[in-house]
Amino acid sequence: MSTANREAPGTGAAPLGRQVPAAAKLVHFIGHQLQLQVRAVIGWSLALGLYTAAMVAIFPSFSDLENLTAAIPEGMREGLGITDIGTIEGFLSAEAFSIVTPLALAFFPMLSLSAVIAGAEERGTIDVLFSNPLPRWLVVVGSFLAVAISLLAVVVIIGLLMWSTALLVGVDLDFSDAAAAVLNLWPLCMFFGSLALLCSAIFHRRLFGIAIPGVLLLGMYLLDVIGNLSEDLEDARVLSVFHHYGSAIEEGIDGSGFAGITCFAVLFVILAVAAFHRRDIYT
């Protein structure tokens, strides 16, 4: 400290730096967020990738799959949307892509995006971040885009682990079906993630940013399942995002469902920008 050269480098007192365009700031912000999310991406990818890979690996061990399908009660088959688990596509749809993976993976963007505003307020890091010349909209949009990229990386890794396992164990899983299955997770998860971002922008409590979309996630799932079983609730299924999610591994991606869910996710981000712009930043 005292031994350091006291002569400051540079000349005069002119401020250092230059005006940085918003687009460049956005790129730097996203890059930093991605850096912070690396561990989470690895963790979620491995957890769900190994799970789906395990489902693929055990598939050949079932010798009498037609009877297995028949053994599942009809109500349960209808409710869970199980068609034919005698094929690898039907099996993975039932075991991985209808319940476990979407319900679990939705928590990745929910946790990440609730941490951006309300989480940073609770951790006390938000004042340091906003000491920089960052517009509020940039933090909201940049966080959404960073998580969207991270989530894409997670689903790609899950898909690669699943497909490469199929190759290894000799299961005939088409690459395009595997790709459709994992890519179809992206809008569904971002829907709940951007809802978490919106709640975080409104309430400045991270708990609300997780609890509200979490309850809605389970509620929409149950609505879709019960709507499959009950004629009274069948029309209400349209309100559930799971109704539009479908079974991409068997039927391919439903373009309108994919686009519609993505539009809602973007709408939540726009609302989050407006909400965060209006309110005070808390610490």
Partner: peptide, 30 residues
């Protein structure tokens, strides 16, 4: 800020480089 807090995993060097990019500061000599 009065309660200065950074992300626990980040180093000062990483934050400095990040903030320098946001402010268009090319030299970190100062």
């Amino acid at each position: 800020p009065g309660e200065f807090t950074l992300e626990d995993r980040m180093t000062g060097e990483a934050m400095l480089r990040y903030f320098a990019r946001l402010r268009g500061v090319e030299s970190l000599d100062y």
